[in-house]
Design a protein around this nucleic acid. Structure first.
Lengths: 234, 234
DNA sequence: TCAAGTGATTGAGTTTTCTCAATGCCAGGA
DNA sequence: TCCTGGCATTGAGAAAACTCAATCACTTGA
């Protein structure tokens, strides 16, 4: 759980203009001249799994673009139970709420080692006022987050544990052809689906026995997409 | 299930400038001169419970401000089960996705008789480009929808049926002092909480027997807020 | 007034999920 | 190499939800 202020974590200032993800990232619509307007540094970090980018309630002063790795956005109930409300992956942006001057709404915790760029709100705010493309991109990110949240409600919080796990697995497939999929701890899976760690474990174990999953490396699986699809849909 | 095109439903053009909800509504930041820019009519409708304002997948060409009543936003799983992902009430706006040229993401169905203003996207789009306040208001509505979705995930899709019902009830209280609360059909409650109609009914019935609820009129209740709070938090 | 339809409630039995405990597995540090 | 801590897995019994039916309460239309 290293804090982001660690010196180790800092990789220096980001070179946005030559960013390898430039086309898929928040700043896709910007032109060279726009970057001259950036008066605060955009830092690049490499962080180990378990790192916390920010906590719910913290004053929101920066957004983050995720370059690689995955993180979870977590909310807590008064009794302490946690619920993972979103999964964040490469090219996603978190911390949009800071644009409205709000505090962060979630804990943002790395599930894997991650690379992230830290964007000061003031920078994004300034750029978005002069650059309609960036502005549009922000709206569209907001909407995407909303769609994602809705999908979690309908797909991942409805139906039996088996169905939910199957749906989660199918969502996690990165490459349809190879049907590869990287999983998380059973505890996190439970927190994503609103089920207990044990139920998550039992279900995954059962899927393995039924050859719906093949574990190639620890937590790295090949899926039987067709049959998981049947389970997911009923 | 009257379609909105019903002649009965149309109340004429809305008089935004003298709107009684002017201060709490999307257009709060507009000034008189801004209204001159509106070249397409903003219509006002009164619709009975059960009306469908739009369906998921329909081409999105208008947003709606709800003046009174409540509606549900519903999504469907491939197997036909439905999940209510949001509850919309007075002064809320639905159909933000149309600003991005998207189709509607949900079915919008009236749970009670409603009054709604229909805002053509083009109008909102034009106004938001010249009026920063309106623009800010749109962002903030988007964020609010997202917070609401997250809250449904953490509060209404986690924990036992009793807890979920208690949390839903507490959310539905309009007036903290009188602790009044209007409920919906058990079927809808189930679809909001990811439980069956029967479980919803049993739980409500049990709460009634325990005097956590007092039914003053059909589906109109007084709550024992303190004790429901205890159930909700654990 | 009566029949029919709708939604709420309740019952009974089944299935699923949870809880609490024990065990197994594996990687890192002494 | 052995010990230890953190996960995953599994077992067993209890509790919670679900399913399928039956009944009840009300409203509406004939």
């Amino acid at each position: 759980m290293k804090p982001i202020s660690d010196k180790d974590a800092w990789d220096g200032e980001a070179d946005c203009i030559n960013c390898t993800l430039r086309n898929s990232v928040l700043f896709a619509g910007l032109e060279e001249k726009d970057f001259d307007q950036i008066h605060q540094p955009i830092d690049l970090y490499t962080l180990p799994a378990g790192s916390i980018l920010y906590r719910a309630g913290d004053k929101g002063d920066r957004m983050y673009t995720i370059r690689s790795g995955a993180l979870k956005l977590v909310q807590y109930l008064p009794d302490g139970t946690q619920r993972i409300v979103r999964l964040i992956r490469s090219t996603d942006v978190i911390g949009l709420e800071t644009l409205l001057g709000q505090n962060y709404q979630h804990d943002a915790v790395a599930l894997q080692p991650i690379q992230a760029c830290s964007l000061p709100v003031s920078v994004v705010q300034a750029l978005s006022q002069t650059n309609p493309k960036l502005h549009q991109e922000l709206l569209s990110r907001w909407q995407r987050a909303l769609e994602e949240a809705d999908a979690w409600l309908t797909e991942l919080s409805t139906g039996s544990a088996k169905q939910r796990i199957a749906r989660l697995l199918l969502r996690l497939v990165r490459n349809e052809d190879t049907s590869e999929c990287e999983l998380f701890s059973r505890e996190d899976m439970g927190a994503m689906l609103g089920i207990t760690t044990e139920t998550a474990s039992r279900t995954i174990a059962e899927f393995k026995r039924q050859s719906l999953l093949m574990e190639t490396q620890p937590n790295h699986f090949l899926l039987d997409i067709r049959n998981l699809g049947h389970i997911a849909e009923d």
